[in-house]
Design a protein around this nucleic acid. Sequence first.
DNA 1: CCGCAAGTTTGAGGAAGGACAAAGTCCGGT
DNA 2: ACCGGACTTTGTCCTTCCTCAAACTTGCGG
Lengths: 231, 231
Amino acid sequence: MPKLDESLLTGLPPFSLLSRVQIREILDQALPKRYDEGSEIFREGHDADRFHLLLDGHIRVVKTTLEGEQIIALHISPGQLFGIAPALNRDTYPATAVAASEVLALSWPVRLWAEFTAKYQGFATESYKTLGARLGEMQTRIAELATQAVEQRVAAALLRMTQQSGRPVAEGIEIAFPVTRRNISEMTGTTLHTVSRLLSAWEKDGIVHSTRKHIVVTDVQRLEALTGAQA
Amino acid sequence: MPKLDESLLTGLPPFSLLSRVQIREILDQALPKRYDEGSEIFREGHDADRFHLLLDGHIRVVKTTLEGEQIIALHISPGQLFGIAPALNRDTYPATAVAASEVLALSWPVRLWAEFTAKYQGFATESYKTLGARLGEMQTRIAELATQAVEQRVAAALLRMTQQSGRPVAEGIEIAFPVTRRNISEMTGTTLHTVSRLLSAWEKDGIVHSTRKHIVVTDVQRLEALTGAQA
DNA sequence: CCGCAAGTTTGAGGAAGGACAAAGTCCGGT
DNA sequence: ACCGGACTTTGTCCTTCCTCAAACTTGCGG
């Protein structure tokens, strides 16, 4: 197995304060792994024996209800830690992580979490900052689900995806991983039918352009307008 | 000002591993304060300059949307830390804390957070455990809001309150702090009218008994049934 | 290159629950 | 003791969006 290149971590917040030597140490303990689109990195309820860092691709964090319905709790973008149950002192993963596109990730055994936070300057702080951001996002989503109409929620979900992992293209901003109507319905608590209708309408209005599993937002302004106090 | 008694903290998880001397140190730095029902302990968006511990009473953690609607994100029971923005490296509170009943709380300046976590065995671990539990609860609520019908959500909210702060009485289990129909609607993303109708119906069925701002669950079993796969 | 599964679109009908309205009841404060 | 505000109940209407249904499209695997 070839050694991992140190440049993989240098720029990332949790590691940015560390020396070459420290990064080398960390990388030498990491297990790199590739996952196909649709495959599971870890599963809700299973032993949280490792924590992970996403290097490339995108991940959907999914929760399954008792009735078997799935809802998407969160998306993870490259450079972010995920599956950090140990940070919260959980011994089991609270949700399932699924590769939304082909994924490359590193992972470490949980026992190293305590070591990393103690030994590496800034690692704990940055990790908890990430957690704080996610908690904030979840609170926002609860508020959205509780108060907003479906159209506004779908607009907000789309917007969030462009912000978190948008890629500028000629037409506008493209969501950088495959998304189906069903996926969007699982983010917003609606049906794929309703999402399809909304996207069709928006396409007609020139706000988005979508093909199979692929969405480009062509008019961010108007999508933002749909999000809020829409008369 | 009389010295605070050490027994206040002895039994509580974040402090249970500490010695008398350590608890004395912690208490001597704490600012105790009483709040009237309905008053704010801190407000969303303000500088997170202190973190808090609830000694007595109950707290509602509330988020206000742009349109001015309130939603209740969380309830805090006695013995729990709250407003722990510093743990997540936030410099501003993500939500508003309102006293649901008369409240007694301690608080410390944020600069002590780093000191507490570094110095006191088990403090960090327990705090993050609390955070993990809240994160889990929020995920569950997102799933609920996204997939369940109003009746099931209201049943679940009621059940959660009895579990987190229920007090056994002759008739069943009583929610230990004042709750209005409007409060419940703010927890479940519905209207106070719908909540009122549901409670009336359940009262008729002998599942709950409610008076003004006061709810007793008289048949936990059947309420649980309403929560889930109800035909 | 064909078949099939996965994804998407569109239509029609109906039910859940929100909006609006009005009146009743309880409690704290002057 | 009474007034007024906060809380609750109940009724009717109407919109939103889910359900059910069916056809169409795309792209991958054999």
